[in-house]
Amino acid sequence: MPTLREIKRRITSVRSTQQITSAMKMVSAAKLNRAQTAVRAAQPYAEKLRQMVSSLHGTVGGEDHPLFMEREGGPSRVILFTSDRGLCGNFNNNLSRTVFAILTAEERLSSPELTIFGRTGNDFFKRREVTIHQAFVHLPPKETPSAVTTVIEEATEEFARGELGGLYIAFNYFYNPIRQEPRFQQLLPIPAPEGDEVVDQREILFEPNRYEIMDSLLPAYLRNQGLTAHLNTVAGEHGARMVSMDAATKNAGEMIESLTLQYNRARQAAITKELIEIVSGAQAV
């Protein structure tokens, strides 16, 4: 049985942890708000860009662009978006595990190599037998978008030269603050649109011509996909952290309650013991 003082000390310690977690929760909530706005605001642009690309990607008519074509051989590059900081539940671990499973299991990814954004992803993969092409750890938030752009541009060029077999991105898709889902998406070769998105492009007029538009639109689309993944990651990170800090605060509360109960019991036991001592002492006289 711990002494009264020990219990008291534990209560104080849990309480100060609770203060920290609840502060972190509030900080995340504020950051989430901003990140969420950014994700939502970027959506229409990304969506339209994707539509334009699918209208260019024809099953009907015209020549093909190198970025649409399947490659034989060459490594597949996977760009992984994780966060630099932990304390956000299984947000990063979940994604890293998913990616690891894909890398080790799937045959269609020939000699995969990783480009990692975020410390947590790097920590996960540096202990495993996976080729890491590049890792960006603790980048200042302002520099991340331009780093993402550069990575995508380089990969696009390598793909166009035939040095790369494929390009994929892996990130947590941000549904809402409490729900993120790992996504593994093929960027290159640009996958063909599915089902009702197939447009008969003989009807569409391309100005100046389809090929030139593709030369500028496709790289812009790829860059945008990378940035979208980044925005989703940032928003998801704060969402996940908010949720896990909320849970931690609640747990701390429960712990304080049970410790308080224990403390009161111990206090009562001590009082009873003292009373018995006094009474039996008096009787002995």
Binding site: M52, S55, L56, E203, I204, L205, F206, E207, P208, E212, I213, S216, L217
Partner: peptide, 14 residues
């Protein structure tokens, strides 16, 4: 400069 009026043919341009 390129003018667009209603009923324009589908167009994609830079």
């Amino acid at each position: 400069e390129m003018g667009i009026l209603p009923q324009h043919v589908p167009l994609v341009t830079v």
